[in-house]
Design a protein around this nucleic acid. Structure first.
Lengths: 114, 114
DNA sequence: CTAATATGCAATTACTAAGTTGCGTATTAG
DNA sequence: CTAATACGCAACTTAGTAATTGCATATTAG
């Protein structure tokens, strides 16, 4: 049986980048707002935040670099919208890891019940 | 209809910490090895790595702090094993975000098809 | 046109993280 | 016992990140 090992792939660094982008509370909040479907401008996303517009902008760029959000210019404001694809990517990875773990437990159980 | 919004919870920072722990290629490799079910010592985990034992140790501590691995001393070596619980936690979160997004698309579709 | 709004760019500061090196200690093999 | 193995601790370097501030530019409202 061929094991699909979760360490495979040249996109390990890509996966790590996505996780890293999600590894910040501010950016998690931004994702939470944007996954509601509506695009927001930077100013709107900064409203009610304790940090400056520039800080929010930088976080948005981090999310954009890994593809979690897309941006488009609309007049004087730049709108950001959520993009789910990278999230599906890491979800598959997490499922793979869980599967590995479950298989390991099954083998252990089978061995002990021999 | 009550929306379960993914920004809720005082454990946003905990979630962010788990994502951050996974946001490093070296640590992803460690998780990949350990999710196979077998515990490994630090030396074994360092074998075939381009970084030093101390660097690996630090990464293991990061993983341990968010609960992704557990460690126990066995004689002169310290064994690390995978723990899946934090991973389930973030998987649920990702599912929630995806669900929000899908709901948003559905509402948009319904609106357009009016 | 003019003021207010929304943003971009650049420099700077403070902090954190990755990784190394050196050294000391505990444990086991022979 | 002695040497090799496996760690832990601490100091240090380097590089990256979060966040701020100041200023310049584009766009829209009145």
């Amino acid at each position: 049986m061929l094991q699909t090992h979760p360490s495979g792939g040249a996109d390990q660094s890509q996966r790590a980048a996505i996780f890293a982008a999600l590894g910040d509370e501010t950016r998690l909040s931004l994702v939470a707002k944007l996954c509601g479907g509506q695009p927001y401008s930077i100013s709107r996303l900064t409203e009610g935040s304790h940090i400056t517009r520039q800080a929010v902008t930088k976080h948005l760029r981090v999310l954009e670099e890994v593809g979690l959000v897309r941006s488009m210019r609309a007049g004087r404001e730049s709108l950001f919208e959520f993009n789910p694809e990278p999230m599906e990517e890491v979800k598959e990875y997490l499922d793979l890891v869980s599967k590995q773990w479950d298989n390991a437990l099954s083998r252990l159980k089978a061995f002990l019940e021999d």
